[in-house]
Every structure is written in structure tokens, then in C-alpha cells.
Design a binder for these strands. Sequence first.
DNA 1: CGAAGCTACCTAAATACATTAGGTAAAACT
DNA 2: AGTTTTACCTAATGTATTTAGGTAGCTTCG
Lengths: 190, 190
Amino acid sequence: MARAGLTADRLTQAGAELADEVGFDNVTLSALARLFDVKVASLYSHVTNSHDLKTRIALLALQELADRAADAVAGRAGKDALVALGNVYRDYAREHPGRYAAMHFRLDRETAIASAGVRHSAMTRAILRGYDLAEPDQTHAVRLLGSVFHGFATLELEGGFGNSSPDSQESWTRTLDALDALLRAWPAPD
Amino acid sequence: MARAGLTADRLTQAGAELADEVGFDNVTLSALARLFDVKVASLYSHVTNSHDLKTRIALLALQELADRAADAVAGRAGKDALVALGNVYRDYAREHPGRYAAMHFRLDRETAIASAGVRHSAMTRAILRGYDLAEPDQTHAVRLLGSVFHGFATLELEGGFGNSSPDSQESWTRTLDALDALLRAWPAPD
DNA sequence: CGAAGCTACCTAAATACATTAGGTAAAACT
DNA sequence: AGTTTTACCTAATGTATTTAGGTAGCTTCG
């Protein structure tokens, strides 16, 4: 009986790939066991349970995306940085829909705080340095950008925009234009 | 043996309430059967399977929210209408998180086309009549508004904004202000 | 190099949900 | 009242999760 050589990391990685193929909700320990040609119970030596596996996939995705984002915004500022960051989010969601969904798996507070999730808001805040926003407006803008990026990616993925004209790429470009214009002329409260 | 008096509608309604309590993903036929003190197999006389039940809950939510939205925007225009529509979405997500999640259950194309989902985009388009946007910009704006509403509601629900200052109500108000300003001064493409 | 210990993987069993096939009794209709 | 319809049932199968306890392969150290 040769061993399969499983580790938590290999399971997480395989789980992430599986998520992209069949959807995050359909990532099961059973499916992973089949993949590695191993009995299900054996996986419990590596992850504590199904929830643990999903948490690990979520953390993987958060980190992967944070890395990409950091890379994309490095050396850019203003609209250039905004577009780069937005594209990283949208492209990741399209290339890795399962991992993207995994990122919104509910983490307990400690795990969330220790996760790469914090880097995401930090980076969004960073690109706002190219615009002239003082607190608390900066925080409002961070939340708005997060909402648009996440909302657009989600709706586009689930086909909420239809597949008719104008195509969603066009809408995305114009959305980024609009956000840039908005941030340059951020309105005072009414 | 007195009968429970089940119908597809009663199951759907109970399923929607259950979704709000335990989350849409945790709505199971088993749980519903327990609720009505009936054997699980009995439910298959009323819904064809679990997927069917979830579809029905999704349709219920879409319709319920479309009704509320229609009510809210009636007799309003411009920013007034924008704020009303935005609030309907956000409030529904907070009051009925399970149903809100249900709305994004993937429907097959026919079902989606026959659903109240189409009323949603129609209403968003309607409030844009208060702003001066010609096609295809109007479609881009519809998609942007959808993204912001959905993204904000989702992130707020899952605690993505933290519970620190400034509170999310404040960000929401400012987001609506920002959208209004943006729509009034919609930028031309670069 | 061989014994000791660690651990990766196993079998077995309990629990839960989804689904189908085929039966019985309550309601509805004539 | 008799017949049809149907709401609900029992029984059985398949799949996923999880725990308890065992065995064989790898590592380590005398």
C-alpha cells in the first residue's frame, strides 16, 4: 500500500481547483478523497473537518488575490491604480469562480483578522491616496469601491447582466471611468 | 391520521422563513418536514426535489422585493427615487438575509426570464429617467447601480465592513449621495 | 542496521439529507 | 354511497460527514 502523500496544503490546493470546476458549494471531502484515491476518513488526519477545509480554501484565495492585487498596483497611482486593482478582482473572479466564492466563506473573527483580508482593504485605501479624500470619506470610498468590485464581479459571474449588448466588458470600462470621475469630484454630504 | 394540509406555496413560504433564520444553504427538505411534522418523502408530492424548492423560494424573494421596490419608487423621481430603491434593497437584505441570498440562486434561463427578476432591471432603468442618460450609457448605469446595491448589501451582511466607525449607515448615505452626483454628471468615455 | 515510535491511511459504524417505488387512508366528486 | 383522487406513509438506496480504533509504511535513533 503506497501512500498518497497528502498534506493539508495539497488538499487545500486540490480543493481550490475543484471549487473552480464544480463550484465552492460542491467541494466535499468525499470528492477530494475520490480525487486522491483515498478513503474519506483518511482526510481527517490532515484537516479537522469540512468547515476547516473550506476555511483553508478561503484563506488561500484571499492571499492569492491579495498577492495579485499588490503586484498590480505596485508603481501605479490614480486612475491607473484604480483600473489595475479593479481588473485584478474581476479577472480573478472570472478565472477562478470557485476561489472567488470561497473568499466570502464566513470566517470566525480571529481567522479573519489574521487573514489576507486585511491587506485588501489596505490596498483599496492605498489607491485612494491618488485622490484627495480625508477621513471619514476615505473609509466611505473604500466601502463603495469594495461594493462595486464585488457586486459587479458577482452579477457578471451569475449572468445577471444577460449576454446581450452592450457586452459587460464595455460596462466594466465605463464603470471604472465613472468611479474615477466620482473620486476626483467626491461630493460633500447633503 | 389528520393531514397537515401542505401545498407547494406553504412549503415555499415556510422555506423562506427558515432561510431567514438558518441561512438559505441550510434550508433542507428534512428540516421542512420536521417543521410540519411530516415524513420527508411526503414533500415530494408538492415539490419535485430540493432544487425545485429553492427555485420557488428564489422566485418568491424576487417577487416580494420587486413589489416593495415598485411601491417605493412610485411617485418619486431623481435622487428621491434612487434613495428609495437603494433602501428597499438594503433593508430587504437586512430583514430577510435568507431570501436575499435565495434571489441569487441560479435559475435556468426560462425560469429567470419568467421571473420577477426582469422587473428589477426595469425599475432601475425607470429611476434613471430622472437623469439625463441615453443608451448605451443607461445600460451601463443600470449595471453599476445593481453592482453597488448588491455589493453593499452583501458585504454589509457578511460583516465585511467591520463594526467599527464610521458605521455602515453613514457609508450607505454617502454612497447614495455619490451615486446621485455621479449620475448627474455621468462622464463620457475616455 | 534493526528496533521503536510516529503517522498516514485503513475498516467499521453512526448520523443526516435526498430521492424513488409502491402502499393506505382521507378527502373530493359523482 | 361508491369511486376517484391525492396527501401522506413505509421501505429502501445512495451519498456526505464524522468518530473510534486498528495496521502498515516511514523515520529516527541506539
